[in-house]
Design a protein around this nucleic acid. Sequence first.
RNA 1: GGCCCCGUAGUGUAGCGGCCUAGCACGCUGCCCUCUCAAGGCGGUAACGCGGGUUCGAAUCCCGUCGGGGCUACCA
Length: 497
Amino acid sequence: MTDLTRLASDKVVARFCPSPTGNPHVGMARTALFSWAFARHHGGDFVFRIEDTDASRDSEESYELLVDVMRWLGLDWDQGVEVGGPDGPYRQSERMDIYVEVTERLLDAGLAYKAYDTAEELEERRELARAEGRPSGYDGLHRDLTPEQQAAFEAEGRKPVIRFKMPVRDYAFNDLVRGEVKIPASDVQDFVIMRANGQPLYTLTNPTDDALMGITHVLRGEDLLSSTPRQIALYEAFAQVGIGSGRTPEFAHLPYVTGSGNKKLSKRDPESNLLGYRDQGFLPEGLLNYLALLGWSISADRDVFTLDEMVQAFDISDVQPNPARFDIKKCEAINSDHVRMLSADDFLARIIPFFEFAGLVSTPIADSERKVLAAASGLVQERIGLLAEAVPMLRFLFARDDFAIDEKDAAKNLTEDGLGVVRAAREALAGLTEWTTSSIEAALRTALIEGLELKPRLAFGPVRVAVTGSRISPPLFESLELLGPDLTLARLDAVLA
RNA sequence: GGCCCCGUAGUGUAGCGGCCUAGCACGCUGCCCUCUCAAGGCGGUAACGCGGGUUCGAAUCCCGUCGGGGCUACCA
């Protein structure tokens, strides 16, 4: 018999154990973040396990996305998929023999039993129970079948599921975010731990692995709150049959993250797709900061902080029990603050992939292109909320034959008057012997503000549109300096032609 | 139907019996600054779901009610 016991330890071990179905979503990331922060705060281990016991729904692609997203977010794990560890493997699909053994032990100890009810029979009894106002879970009909009765069912060709025999009593536990939670004995039912085809269910595999991996704190979604008595009962059974350390972990049920309705954000909601956030140019630290705010706060009057600061301050008992709605506007605002907090070099490194992807620079970026971007990045760092926004703002520096002016902006600014301004600007700039921000500014102010007696707004607008292609751009004089005299004059000429 | 969880402005939160004529942030909005857009500065808007208790005193404690959500699978 395999030794499935382990020593109890005081070290905190938390975990994140998603099922690889669909796209990783923000609710998941929030759960992972809190669990991770909890482990880090207590100097414990963080385990990343994959619960792929439902072959019909799980996919390899989804698994890869999950790993990808965790790495992007920077939520590192001490044990788990891809990195290994003492209690592996960390994909449940590779641990089937363990679950079979655990089930056998429970069966042998009389803590679980075979149930032969058909789906139709169960359905019928469920409906009846409901109609009579009774709880509609399993009624325990096959709990104490004699060997003869079992044999009779077998002879009919029925294949049994394995149900865990829930000790009938009240269950209570202290939820770390909700306090005391009680479930009356009348509402506990025997649940299936193994399908008729021999495949174990989440109800078994999750607590089994938590026990075997020495998980001390289970932080998970609120949807699992009502299944906690089952897990507690299973842990107690494990203790009897020598599985795990004999200790039941602490539980903390995190509230939902909802979308614009009140429904929990699902994997199908586009706004919940994590990789979409990455592609839009959210910073992992910005997204994480925002997610942390959903149910937790670092202090009464501050909401921008680093991951390190969060780890330092994170206390699970400060987490709010009520659900939070995901607000993309605030998420962007928090992200903007983090964009601004980046060092110049870091910011540059982060926007480069967006320019490569847009095809504005070569991939990988050439040194000459990098130089231009480095000089320009400071101009956009405080103007954007998402990294991807840097691309349209600096497109004019890289565009050549494909340079185009926004039609609406042209119609508004390059009117007859506007072209007059452009003409004057062209003349003033053509005569410059020195091409710097200050000389450009001086020349344009002299020619347009003083010469044409224009308000700055009217003076620089047409020039901006002609040269950058848009009414919205980085500061004009700096932009012209970066573009250089040749391209600047050529663009002014182009609109005058 | 049964059971469980939740309930402070539009949104996220602070609040743990007196410091609350309820703070902060996002949003929206007015003004200032300004070459556009941002950023920044100064204002404004708006909340304790409701009803009963307990108490000298309640957003904070208790009960009820209403509302929202979850579970009630051979999903997780």
